[in-house]
């Protein structure tokens, strides 16, 4: 684990050293919290993306929602929902799912204007998502495309945490049981009707707080026990 810590830290430091001045370098300048920090001493940014599909090479980000978690609480005041103008028309199926209509998206800023805002909000915070690979791949790909560097950062993945919790109880998790709403129900969390990136980010943040509260450990879990590299 120590090696892993050094590895992460050194990679980020290296990227900062070689980076060009700009949003990416500013992001890497700030230290990521060390992985042995107790979970509640860490600040998180719950983040959710709406995309046109699942392949970062071909699909586009349509909106970003985020909400910070500080000192064990979701701060609604800093929650944001930002639409992103795609370069190509949105496939019809996706538009139906997200309710993001072309004309609203057409008026939105392009990704190069949105990404700096997201990176700034993420600086010094641990990103958190329900099924983090999507956010990880899309954001990293966008950073590479716009700033020439990947986004190397461990995430908290509430789906992984849920899977672990279910497996610990020696049950096999069915796919549906790990969905955001199904997982929330197990913790007596309300069902949100609205589906947009911001409410999903808030929903994931609340789920995370519930999951941590239910970890029956003698001491509060450390960051490396709730995050994935």
């Amino acid at each position: 684990m120590l090696r892993h810590v050094l590895g992460l830290d050194m990679t980020r430091r290296a990227l900062w050293l070689v980076g060009k001045p700009g949003p990416m370098r500013d992001y890497y300048q700030e230290d990521y919290p060390t992985l042995d920090t107790p979970w509640h001493a860490v600040d998180y940014l719950a983040i959710d993306l709406e995309t046109t599909g699942l392949d970062p090479m071909h699909d586009e980000i349509l909106s970003v929602g985020f909400a910070p978690v500080r000192r064990g609480a979701v701060h609604m005041a800093e929650a944001r929902h930002i639409l992103v103008r795609p370069t190509r028309p949105v496939p019809e199926q996706t538009a139906i799912i997200h309710g993001l209509l072309d004309d609203r998206l057409a008026a939105a800023p392009p990704l190069e204007d949105v990404l700096p805002v997201v990176l700034k909000a993420m600086t010094g915070l641990v990103p958190l998502a329900h099924y983090a690979p999507v956010e990880r791949r899309f954001l990293s790909h966008a950073c590479k495309r716009l700033y020439g560097q990947p986004l190397i950062v461990p995430y908290v993945d509430t789906l992984r945490l849920e899977q672990r919790s279910v497996e610990r109880q020696q049950e096999t998790a069915t796919k549906g049981a790990l969905r955001l709403n199904a997982a929330r129900e197990r913790y007596n969390l309300p069902r949100y009707r609205a589906h947009n990136a911001m409410m999903d980010a808030i929903a994931a943040a609340e789920l995370f707080l519930a999951q941590v509260a239910h970890m029956d450990t003698k001491r509060p879990p450390r960051l490396d026990e709730v995050s994935v590299g």
Binding site: G72, A73, V74, M76, I202, A205, E206, L209, A210, A213
Partner: peptide
């Protein structure tokens, strides 16, 4: 008021 809120999770017995 809604915008000023913080969400907390409190486990039973805490």
């Amino acid at each position: 008021a809604a915008g000023s809120l913080r969400g907390l999770y409190v486990r039973q017995g805490k």
